[in-house]
Design a protein around this nucleic acid. Structure first.
Lengths: 111, 111
DNA sequence: TGGCTATATAGCTATATGGCTATCGAATCA
DNA sequence: TGATTCGATAGCCATATAGCTATATAGCCA
């Protein structure tokens, strides 16, 4: 691993777990407490809290407080950074540009 | 981890490493051999090969063969799947919708 | 105060990951 | 053929991660 890690490392790593993606999908509908978030899963509460910590570390969520509850909500900026990185490849799939690219690469090799 | 893993797990996990993202960026310009791909990094050849295997397993690249060379090229479909997943959150950042969302959540709580 | 509810933290285990060196296999070239 | 080049594979190590149970902390309520 590199000495210093890029913010996108943590973002994409956070997105690589299905439980965390489901949590994010839920939070897209509005903020939710830990109890609410753990509801759909057959996982222990500490496990969910750990996932939330990963998401928070990646900047994908943030937490408030409401008495003894710690409602989490989405932070869209980190998601946007990930989206922006992927967007650079858009033309490669959008316009079947990958086929064109292969053709160009093959053509260039001949010259 | 879940018993069966979603394809997106591997895709996002592959994207979480800066070396692999750099490799993908390079491949966006056209296909390249292992020797060419390892050039920008202070990493051993087997390490690069391992990264390539991760990318291939995630469906993000594919390999051809040209004599004893194994040129890799991008596979845009997997990238598109990742993009599509993230896109669902677009309105959350695009139109400052996260602020509106918070307002709605707060309002709903009052009723 | 005492007890209940909501969440965090500690500490353990098993597995996955990223790095390395050493070595093998296959194709090319002299 | 033999040497060289390109790349894959094996095997090792250190660290990170996902899960668990047990326990601690903090706020609310009777």
């Amino acid at each position: 691993m590199a000495i210093e890690s890029h913010p996108l490392d943590a973002t994409f790593a956070a997105l690589s777990d299905p439980t965390r993606r489901a949590i994010l999908a839920r939070l897209a509908l509005g903020e939710a407490t830990v109890s609410e978030l753990m509801q759909p899963f057959a996982l222990s509460q500490p496990t969910i809290s750990k996932h939330l910590k990963v998401l928070e570390h990646a900047g994908l969520i943030e937490g408030g407080r409401d008495a003894q509850r710690r409602p989490r909500r989405l932070r869209a900026e980190a998601m946007k950074d990930a989206a922006d990185w992927i967007e650079r490849f858009r033309d490669q799939w959008d316009r079947r540009f990958d086929n064109l690219d292969r053709h160009l690469a093959a053509t260039k090799k001949e010259t």
